[in-house]
Simulated assay, not measured.
Amino acid sequence: MDEFLRVQRMCVPVWARWYVFAPCVLNLIVLLGAGWSKVVSEPTSLLPDLILTAFISLLAAAITRYTGVRAWRKTTLLVGGIRGVATDWGIEWITANTTSKFEWSKFVKARQEADLSLVFYATRGLFYFPRSFFASEHEWQQFNTLVRSRVKNG
């Protein structure tokens, strides 16, 4: 489940990430309230706004986590186990119900981290490859090298 939630976090657009979301909420609250001129003249008046921003941000984080856990449960019930295979031709994604094959030319971007690689075929459509899919570190490195060489921005 942790890998699934991490994949979802990696797919969140920049505008929806906490470090963008929280300042935007704070600005909105302040502007709808007294305005920035009051904050400049009385900095302590910002405290209630900061508390409200923290509450809204925590609520948004809790809702995001809840929906992620719910999506993971539905996905595992629907597709069961997942595995993927990368070849010189492309990627084959295999679940209990279906198999999908995509040529490398169909992928639009890749995103790689230390123990997780995402290969996108659409803006929010992707195949995910955690380190746990691979038997050895050598296989993991070979996969990442193949992705970087085959995906345009990979």
Rank of each mutant, 00 (worst) to 15 (best):
L50P: 02
R65M: 15
R17S: 15
T53K: 02
E42Y: 03
P23G: 07
W36S: 02
P43I: 03
G33T: 05
R9W: 09
V108F: 08
L78C: 03
E3T: 13
L26C: 08
R83M: 03
T87I: 00
E137D: 14
S132H: 00
G84F: 02
E139S: 00
T64D: 15
D49M: 11
V30S: 00
T99S: 02
V85G: 02
V147R: 09
A71D: 04
L26F: 07
G81L: 08
E92R: 04
I91C: 11
L52M: 13
L59Y: 04
T123H: 03
L126V: 03
A16T: 05
L31D: 01
M1L: 12
T53V: 12
L50R: 10
P130V: 00
N27P: 10
Q8C: 05
W72C: 01
W18E: 15
L31Y: 10
D115T: 07
L47R: 10
E113Y: 03
I91T: 06
F143L: 09
S149M: 03
P48A: 08
I63N: 10
L116K: 01
F129D: 10
Y19L: 10
N27E: 03
G68F: 06
W93M: 11
W15H: 10
S45V: 06
A135F: 13
W18F: 09
I56D: 05
R17I: 11
F134D: 07
L31A: 13
L126P: 06
K106S: 12
W72V: 04
R6K: 13
L26A: 06
R148Q: 14
S57V: 06
E139Q: 12
